[in-house]
């Protein structure tokens, strides 16, 4: 007899596919924000399933900070080609010039804050009414509060004190012109769920997610890759180490972990053992204030 039950990964997958289809049904011009990281890769594969045998019916948008890992960009282009989707790339560099924005300075000059300008300009340029993102609620405590359908005002701002009720799986994406909705289909997935899913589905990943040798420096207990985007001071010790990335963001604000894990099995095993959170171990920009993420979201960040 067939057992009519789903394991937890299948349950999460069914929920995410439902949300992705709901975006297509409720909005005129959605887009998927694609960074080349594991969460947006998971979204891309879920979207493929959701609209099969049709093509993914919305474009992918990459907000290119100019501080990317080469491997993530190569993966992005390959995936776009393979899936036959339209890839829209907009560069933070261009926004900086156009709007005369001031770049962050210092040892690790992050463009994390500036990419919000480019994102909002891109939403305006293409008149996107919904942007699908790969944020998860387990990542960070402000994200833990956000709805699956997160309504943003004309300025892209999130008002955490005035979120719409979101009942059962009935999603209300009705908005006024000029507003837009950020949709997070994998809200309920944890980091381990994402890794377990990538493994179960045998989904290829950019090579930086697996152990490789790289030149790094130590900074406040974190390992930062040597790149043209950061300043190497005289007292920095440059070392070669076997590392992998747990998260893929900008080279200026993403730290690596020491590892010998070269397969998904080994990575999943390490994630199960770790006593450090993903953001805590890999992001250097969240350390600034307790409310760093909330503040960014209030300003239009995804």
């Amino acid at each position: 007899m067939q057992a009519y039950t789903l394991n937890y990964l299948q349950q999460l997958e069914a929920e995410s596919i439902y949300i992705l289809r709901e975006v297509m049904a409720q909005f005129e011009k959605p887009a998927l924000l694609f960074s080349g990281g594991k969460d947006s890769i998971t979204l891309a594969y879920l979207a493929k399933k959701a609209f099969s045998p049709g093509k993914i019916p919305f474009p992918f948008v990459h907000i290119d900070t100019g501080h990317n890992f080469e491997e993530a960009l190569a993966y992005r282009d390959l995936l776009a080609k393979e899936f036959g989707i339209t890839l829209i790339v907009r560069k933070v560099e261009d926004t900086i010039k156009k709007r005369n924005l001031k770049e962050a300075t210092g040892k690790f000059p992050s463009r994390n804050w500036l990419q919000t300008f480019t994102l909002l300009d891109t939403i305006e340029e293409f008149q996107f009414d919904a942007c699908i993102g790969g944020a998860r609620r387990d990542e960070e405590k402000a994200r833990a509060k956000e709805r699956v359908f997160s309504v943003r005002n004309d300025f892209g701002q999130w008002d955490p004190k005035l979120q719409r009720p979101e009942l059962w799986n009935i999603y209300n994406g009705k908005i006024h012109k000029g507003e837009n909705v950020r949709v997070f289909p994998i809200s309920n997935w944890t980091e381990l769920d994402v890794w377990s899913y990538l493994k179960a589905e045998n989904i290829p990943l950019p090579s930086i997610y697996f152990a490789h040798e790289r030149e790094i420096i130590h900074h406040q207990g974190q390992l930062l890759a040597v790149s043209p985007f950061i300043t190497i001071d005289a007292d920095d010790i440059v070392e070669k180490k076997m590392i992998r990335y747990r998260t893929v963001g900008d080279m200026t604000c993403t730290a690596a972990v020491e590892s010998n894990a070269t397969t998904l099995d080994e990575v999943v095993h390490e994630i199960k053992q770790t006593r450090m959170s993903e953001r805590g171990e890999t992001r250097i920009d969240d350390r600034v204030t307790e409310a760093a993420m909330e503040d960014r979201k209030k300003n239009g960040y995804f």
């Binding site: 609620r137 387990d138 833990a144 509060k145 955490p160 979120q163 809200s187 309920n188 944890t190």
Partner: peptide, 9 residues
């Protein structure tokens, strides 16, 4: 003020 979702196993 608002619901927070937490995950553990």
């Amino acid at each position: 003020i608002d619901v927070a979702y937490k995950y553990f196993a």
